[in-house]
Design a protein around this nucleic acid. Structure first.
Lengths: 232, 232
DNA sequence: ACGGTAGGGATTGTTGAACAATCCTGCAAG
DNA sequence: CTTGCAGGATTGTTCAACAATCCCTACCGT
């Protein structure tokens, strides 16, 4: 079989390897480090990030640190108050409401416009089994990340890099919410069955039913999270 | 009548005035200027933006310019190639495809979940009449911006600041596309009737029909733009 | 004539230091 | 208890410098 049989341009394969070639700037690497520390919960919500300590800790210039911080502020992971510095975002009830408002628009809409076909739900199924495996192993954190993979896979069905990026931002905010609310395990566990159901409906060739299931499921998840915040 | 009768905190009124208090940083103002110049077409696609000339032109430091440029790169208005500088983004056919992919997910989904009620379509109607007025006055540019107002108003129906922001980014990319394709007048004019139809369906209490109209309409618009790009 | 190769200039990436503006803290005075 | 005021700390912004990289051009060998 000719590897280039069904590809218009044989260089297309190389385009996906570009991130490895394009040398990332120092500020980007600093942003990556901070993003990771926040995503994994080492930097809690509200933590103030002073510039000078970051410079010495990461051995980069203050200007580079500021560039990285501005980038993360743009992603809503950090919050900047003028002349007072930046701190890790502290999502409040209104943030949760809006993130779920956006997700309930985005995710069901992607499902609804999926054209049924063989293996359309492949990535969803992989995320579901990943979640089951983590649950069986008692790995609460693994259940959480499997859940994120599931929702990322849902949006990825649209095949739109822009929507993928938007979803990544929303999920990053969700991670902050989960860290803020405490133990994320019991929040993700009950939704394994919902993921399973959505996946099954999609595999069964009924995207609209899958979308309606997901919409209802997201509504319940938002309610549960909001009650955990003490508000409604 | 006590002005503070039904408000828990009388300071709530002041919260909406915060943007006037929060002094914007110099980099933000520089970014605003560049964004405006690009949106109005004074800086065409592909134009290289060197840092030093921008410094002298705007009388700010190179560092501040770099911060503004990074911000606009994050908004996909500029494109940075490492060690080669930034230039105004040149949307290609794949960009148009993806932006419309995202819009066809976003906009109909917002319409579909609108709960009919009195004056839900108020902002849409305002944008439609704005478009008619501009068309009658022969103001092609006005038709274009009225069109943008219409689609912004559609997404605003969701009431989600995050979706509003995402839509603003997509529309900024669309402006680049229109400037790139040449005269935008004849591209917007035929869609006035479509806007009118969508608005009418929504006013008639049938959001789903409005969503389906809009989806079809966006599909046709994408096709027209892509053929203008010489590709399909 | 053609492709490869070194040099020089221009531009970006990054650093370090400096200064003004602003904010926070603690303390004294009313 | 609140107000006003130093003093220190932090941020916002500028400037100057250097290394790294890129672009362009002239040169050279085949």
């Amino acid at each position: 079989m000719d590897p280039a049989a069904d590809v218009t341009d044989p260089l297309d394969r190389l385009r996906s390897a570009r991130p490895q070639v394009a040398t990332t700037s120092t500020a980007d690497r600093v942003a990556d480090v901070l993003r990771g520390e926040i995503a994994e919960g080492w930097l809690r919500s509200g933590t103030r990030l002073r510039e000078q300590p970051l410079c010495t800790a990461l051995a980069v210039s203050r200007n580079t640190v500021r560039e990285a911080l501005s980038q993360l502020v743009g992603e809503r992971v950090l919050v900047r108050e003028p002349h007072r510095g930046v701190c890790v975002a502290s999502p409040d009830a209104e943030t949760v409401r809006d993130v779920y408002r956006a997700r309930r628009v985005l995710e069901p809409a992607v499902l609804r416009q999926v054209r049924p076909g063989p293996d359309v739900a492949g990535d969803l199924r992989a995320a579901v089994t990943e979640g089951h495996r983590a649950a069986a192993a008692g790995d609460g954190d693994g259940v959480g990340s499997a859940n994120q993979h599931f929702h990322r896979a849902v949006v990825a069905l649209a095949g739109s890099p822009r929507l993928d990026h938007q979803m990544a931002l929303l999920l990053a905010e969700m991670r902050l919410v989960f860290h803020r609310v405490g133990r994320p395990q019991e929040f993700h566990l009950p939704y394994l069955a919902d993921n399973e159901a959505v996946c099954a409906q999609l595999e069964g060739g009924d995207p609209v039913a899958a979308a309606e299931l997901l919409d209802d499921y997201l509504g319940r998840a938002a309610g549960a999270l909001l009650s955990a915040f003490g508000e409604q």
